[in-house]
Design a binder for these strands. Sequence first.
DNA 1: TATAATAATTTTGAATTCGAGATATTTAAT
DNA 2: ATTAAATATCTCGAATTCAAAATTATTATA
Lengths: 146, 146
Amino acid sequence: MERDDIQQSLKLFIVLSRAHRSINDKVNSFIAEKGLNMTEFGVLELLYHKGDQPLQQIGGKILLASGSITYVVDKLEQKEYLTRIACKTDRRVTFASITEKGKAFIESIFPEHEARIHEMMSVLTASERETAINLLKKIGLNADGK
Amino acid sequence: MERDDIQQSLKLFIVLSRAHRSINDKVNSFIAEKGLNMTEFGVLELLYHKGDQPLQQIGGKILLASGSITYVVDKLEQKEYLTRIACKTDRRVTFASITEKGKAFIESIFPEHEARIHEMMSVLTASERETAINLLKKIGLNADGK
DNA sequence: TATAATAATTTTGAATTCGAGATATTTAAT
DNA sequence: ATTAAATATCTCGAATTCAAAATTATTATA
């Protein structure tokens, strides 16, 4: 009985990993077609939706080491999707700010990005999706606490 | 209404990603303490539970490019957790075979590994876990089909 | 104010993964 | 039996990430 519970938990772990991978691969390849990787897309989306951000804040929100932020921001800057802006009050700080080109890019792909995710999730009913959200939230919060 | 559905799907995607990351980080750091990364552990576990495998089969089951298999198998071989065995009937093929040392290693960490995952999943009841498994299976299979 | 502790960013080197090409072998087709 | 196509593994170079150290700037303290 205890044994079965453990097996079930393991099974859930595996199924969760597979579902995540399957979806991620799709999202990833769509974004890659557009010339970005997921991390770059994540940063750009953050700037688009939340406005300019100090580099360090980006690390906190996207879960990325500081060295990686520099790398990703460099790449987005090369692509002219964002610019670095020095903070006037604290010279240690640099803001990342999405450019018009970056905004146009996000706006050009976001609708299809959303639609594709929705299509993948539409195998569940709205009510099932709600259930899944609640269960996964619990799992995530509990794991963070450990 | 349609809009809300899309938002809900997006939310599910985010919650799924976060839950996966939270759990994975924990599992990962436990395995890392023991001197392996998740990929190495995955390969070793496969050999332990399913017996000797041609390298290529490993790639299929663990979802790894052929170049990466060579790399991971090299590392496990260096650690003396597996050996390469040439196939007698097809000289293109090499089997990976877990060693006694590898078996002992898996046996020494697997119980705690399972217990930790179970602890993280125990925030859900057995019935909720069953529900989560079914919903995630659907999502994964559907995404694969696209 | 000089000094020490903090903080933000960048640099560097290592680890891991992928994809494409190289090599060796086997299978299928002529 | 040769040749062509397919298969398995490995090699190589590029991309991405992290962690630790280096740099620069700020804040707190003596």
